[in-house]
Write a protein that binds this DNA or RNA. Structure first.
Lengths: 190, 190
DNA sequence: AATCTCATGTAATGGGTTACATGATTTT
DNA sequence: AAAATCATGTAACCCATTACATGAGATT
């Protein structure tokens, strides 16, 4: 037996707790604001929304009459939904299982030329460097909002985590490159 | 259409490249040495091994006669397997998708009491603190092996990555706690 | 007219864990 | 004799992405 571990439900509830949204905008928001630590596809979002309504945790308003353009369906959270969200927030977060393919390749590095790994590490450094910049951009954006009186402390904390994690990955990769290169120098001089 | 993205195959090939192993020992090794950045279950390992043999990338020797205790099956890599491994190592590693439930909860933090988040962050700090210790333990272990003349550079690099990543997560969480607590002080004094 | 974006949705497929089934050997 | 560990394996299930289908409204 296994209880439902699907998190899509709670991501959606968390977003609806701020304001009513359509499935489409939920997807777009996750892409823009959560993508560095979470992702959801339409294949998860639309069925989840229907389930939320069936469970009384959200209500849908497909008011095609009331000036609502296109066939869009707005979902709003209910009191039961807020309760469900709050209960979930109290539960201990699941221990994250990391799957870094680059580490797998590094650990099997003896089966290829050092240049191959150095190349992968270069790409990795560039990618993480860009992510650090993006995250710092978010940080500044949130600082600007704070000056205007909008409190974004919690969102900003996730961006800060991004800064920390991507900086660490970049720094590791830079050091890893040095260690691999040094090892090669030693090997060649023997 | 979608090409096969299953990585189990390559993890197993990478391990077999060092020495012949049974499915059971592959599982145990992954648990002990790779668990901080990779995981595989028996449900993946046993079918994958059979597939590897079918593809000629590995051979099995269930020599129950030749003193092999129990029904264990030893798998060895073939030349074709080494080629396959080497080809895969050259491919660009897939971009890792992170899923940090704790960040989700932090970002929805406005829907619960700050104490709830502070509690989660405490657990998170303890967990990462322990992981940093574990990784440093591995680092020393590899240093000791290096003194004995065994080259473990690549394995050690993955442990080093662990040190970096878990330290970063811990540091972030410590700072996050401070920021949340401070925010509360301000809120209460208003 | 064509194309792009908005918008909803489902079916197929893949990837992975969990639970279960089975049995040998070793340890207590 | 019982329990723990070694050892292999499969079926059910869950989670998630991808590909596809459909169509409205806006833009070029």
């Amino acid at each position: 037996m296994k209880e439902n571990t699907g998190k899509s439900k709670y991501v959606i509830l968390g977003m609806l707790a701020r304001m009513p949204l359509t499935g489409y905008t939920i997807k777009k928001w996750i892409e823009n604001e959560y993508s560095h630590f979470w992702q959801e596809s339409y294949g998860q979002i639309y069925p989840s929304l229907k389930k939320l309504v069936a469970e009384g945790l959200a209500v849908s308003s497909d008011n095609t009459e009331t000036g609502n353009r296109r066939g869009q369906i707005l979902y709003s959270i209910t009191d039961a939904g807020r309760k469900e969200l709050s209960d979930w927030l109290r539960e201990e977060p699941e221990i994250e299982k990391l799957r870094y393919e680059i580490l797998l390749k590094v650990s099997f590095g003896g089966n290829t030329e050092p240049e191959v790994l150095l190349g992968h590490l270069d790409d990795f450094i560039k990618r993480n460097e860009k992510l650090v910049k993006d995250m710092n951009g978010y940080m500044e954006h949130f600082d600007a909002l704070k000056v205007q009186g909008t409190d974004c402390t919690y969102s900003q904390l996730t961006a800060l985590c991004g800064v920390y994690i991507y900086s660490a990955m970049r720094d590791w990769a830079v050091l890893a490159k040095e260690i691999i290169s040094e090892k090669e120098v030693v090997r060649n001089s023997e």
